[in-house]
Amino acid sequence: MARALGQNGLSGPFGHCSVRLDDERFLVCAPRPMALIRAGEPGTVVDIAGELPPDVLGEVRIHQQLYRRRPGVGAICRFISPQITALAALGKTPRARHGFGSYFATGVPMWTGAALIRNDAAAEQAAALMAEQPALFLNVNGAVTAAATPERAVALAYFLEDAARVELAALSAGLADTGPVLAGDVAAERATWNGRIAERVWEFLLRNDPEPLAF
């Protein structure tokens, strides 16, 4: 997950990702630039309820809150990508204007605080704002995606960055208010995981990865 995000322009020096281990614990990647995390480099096991281990980044609190509130979530990406950052700087989130955007047709909430989420109160509020949505914009600090599997969480990050690119293009063309959007049953039908959608994104992003791919 970390290398898929870090080595494909979805996150630079900052960001983190995690996978649920069971009802009480999750594994978060090492606190390093995700592109540089080596094959086999250990992460840290974190309790879903309780204090963070001393070597874990403070923002991992939002992972705790999402796993606690959403038992169906099996993986989380926290990343800072260029198109999302640019769109958020305008106070905007993407609309469902193309296939990738359809996965966010019900909306992408915007956390308006500019400070990093490094305390329990803020993490609780951000998780509550995200609710059951697949993604959350963190103002000018990137975004979060959450899904049932690592492949889907990473695919959502890839889709969200592209949805931000398309939204910026609509704004640049002056057509953001009049251009068509996907909605309702049309968007729901398009936002499918059938046909190895997430797995193909995973394979593409990890095309040169040293570890063997497994599903």
Results as ranks from 00 to 15, higher is better:
residue 79 F to T: 04
residue 207 R to N: 02
residue 25 R to F: 02
residue 8 N to K: 11
residue 39 A to W: 08
residue 205 L to I: 02
residue 143 A to L: 06
residue 146 A to H: 10
residue 138 L to R: 09
residue 123 A to G: 06
residue 9 G to V: 00
residue 78 R to I: 04
residue 214 A to E: 15
residue 62 I to L: 12
residue 114 A to N: 08
residue 58 G to A: 14
residue 212 P to E: 00
residue 211 E to S: 12
residue 174 G to L: 01
residue 68 R to T: 04
residue 41 E to Y: 03
residue 19 V to P: 06
residue 37 I to H: 13
residue 194 N to D: 14
residue 182 L to H: 04
residue 125 Q to P: 05
residue 200 R to D: 05
residue 42 P to T: 00
residue 39 A to N: 03
residue 54 P to R: 10
residue 44 T to N: 04
residue 46 V to P: 14
residue 91 G to P: 06
residue 138 L to I: 00
residue 96 A to N: 04
residue 7 Q to W: 00
residue 162 D to Q: 15
residue 141 N to C: 03
residue 37 I to L: 15
residue 10 L to G: 10
residue 50 G to R: 14
residue 161 E to N: 10
residue 178 T to W: 09
residue 214 A to W: 10
residue 60 V to H: 08
residue 115 A to M: 08
residue 160 L to A: 07
residue 64 Q to S: 02
residue 184 G to L: 01
residue 55 D to G: 09
residue 196 R to Q: 14
residue 83 Q to L: 04
residue 30 A to Q: 08
residue 103 Y to Q: 06
residue 28 V to T: 07
residue 123 A to N: 08
residue 18 S to C: 09
residue 193 W to M: 14
residue 191 A to Q: 13
residue 7 Q to R: 11
residue 164 A to K: 08
residue 202 W to I: 03
residue 153 A to T: 10
residue 81 S to E: 03
residue 47 D to T: 05
residue 28 V to K: 11
residue 23 D to S: 13
residue 175 L to V: 10
residue 195 G to W: 09
residue 162 D to I: 02
residue 169 A to Q: 10
residue 27 L to G: 01
residue 22 D to S: 13
residue 23 D to Y: 07
residue 214 A to H: 15
residue 177 D to S: 11
residue 165 R to T: 01
residue 141 N to Q: 12
residue 134 P to R: 01
residue 5 L to S: 11
residue 133 Q to K: 15
residue 16 H to A: 05
residue 94 P to D: 05
residue 174 G to M: 03
residue 191 A to L: 13
residue 40 G to H: 03
residue 12 G to Q: 10
residue 173 A to M: 11
residue 196 R to F: 11
residue 61 R to G: 05
residue 62 I to T: 07
residue 193 W to Y: 14
residue 74 G to D: 05
residue 49 A to F: 06
residue 190 R to V: 08
residue 153 A to D: 09
residue 29 C to E: 09
residue 206 L to P: 06
residue 86 A to E: 07
residue 129 L to Y: 08
residue 189 E to L: 13
residue 81 S to R: 09
residue 126 A to M: 09
residue 208 N to W: 01
residue 210 P to K: 15
residue 123 A to M: 02
residue 86 A to K: 10
residue 178 T to F: 06
residue 141 N to V: 00
residue 108 V to F: 10
residue 128 A to Y: 01
residue 34 M to N: 02
residue 27 L to E: 06
residue 203 E to C: 15
residue 9 G to M: 03
residue 155 A to H: 08
residue 28 V to N: 07
residue 27 L to H: 07
residue 156 L to E: 05
residue 184 G to K: 05
residue 208 N to M: 04
residue 119 N to G: 11
residue 175 L to I: 06
residue 67 Y to M: 09
residue 156 L to V: 06
residue 73 V to D: 14
residue 165 R to L: 02
residue 113 G to L: 04
residue 174 G to I: 00
